[in-house]
Write a protein that binds this DNA or RNA. Structure first.
Lengths: 141, 141
DNA sequence: CTCTGTGCAAAGGATTTGCACTACG
DNA sequence: CGTAGTGCAAATCCTTTGCACAGAG
């Protein structure tokens, strides 16, 4: 089984919720999309593998995954929330302030910082999101 | 003049836009709020110092400031976007996945990373947002 | 004067809620 | 069996748009 699917599924069962077939389909479609997707777009994808799943279930499942800290909604341009996967415990991207292009990158320098802050604020840190903002080469003219 | 107000104001004029009295009032109210505020809440505050300013102008000014990279909308809990100030070139906070409490902290370790990535992706990085996620002491039970 | 910015009202979307029904454990 | 989950439709809330007017340069 795909590691990400397992992490997302486990986050649901570990919090005392049921892993229904609808939720499984949603998780599967979400992982396949690699994130950066809106709830509606995800609902669309889910319908292709499980036509009976309604938009509402997608919204509610995403909310649940957000609570579990394995997914995070962000503003990417305008309008609807885009959901990104936090299953690796971190997510890093560059975002253009003008055209809202997103470029993901890998970097894991914040592990130590997580520990320090966990103690300082009595906060159980489980993941982080690092967004760098600026202008892409096109928008910088 | 307050440094943050100056940075926000300059971001408007430097991009060829006008610094009207409405925009000045919005910027002033935004800085006073210290960010983490919704557009509607900000409009409310603005009305207290400049009653003629409409909600629309607040939305449009915030959008402008986002384009300029000095403000960033984030999902903080549910519903409306919360706007945070990026006037220092960075913003760091902890956010609880359950109750959405936010704790800000200071840290500037990402400067070098900004330079590296700027070159690697031909991206003019001007600011960053680091969000650590997890559970606050209350929600961890 | 000209063109950007503003305000209103209405439109357009996205998200949430209420409720009866289904199905997992 | 009982409770958590689902789906629909409606409601609600947030954001955007169209347009005529005001104000800055």
């Amino acid at each position: 089984m795909d590691t990400q699917i397992k992490i997302l599924s486990d986050s649901i069962t570990q919090n005392g919720h049921r892993l229904t077939t609808s939720r499984q389909a949603i998780i599967e479609a979400l992982v396949e999309s690699h994130g950066h997707i809106t709830a509606d777009e995800l609902a669309e994808r889910v319908r292709q593998i499980a036509p009976q799943v309604g938009r509402m279930t997608v919204y509610r499942t995403l909310e649940l995954l957000c609570e579990n800290g394995v997914v995070r909604p962000i503003y990417q341009g305008t309008g609807a929330a885009h959901y990104i996967l936090m299953t690796d415990g971190s997510h890093h991207h560059l975002m253009c302030n003008r055209c809202h292009t997103v470029i993901e990158f890998d970097n894991c320098f914040a592990d130590e910082l997580e520990k320090t802050l966990s103690k300082q604020f009595e906060f159980k840190v489980t993941s982080h999101l690092l967004e760098l903002h600026g202008l892409c080469s096109d928008c910088a003219e």
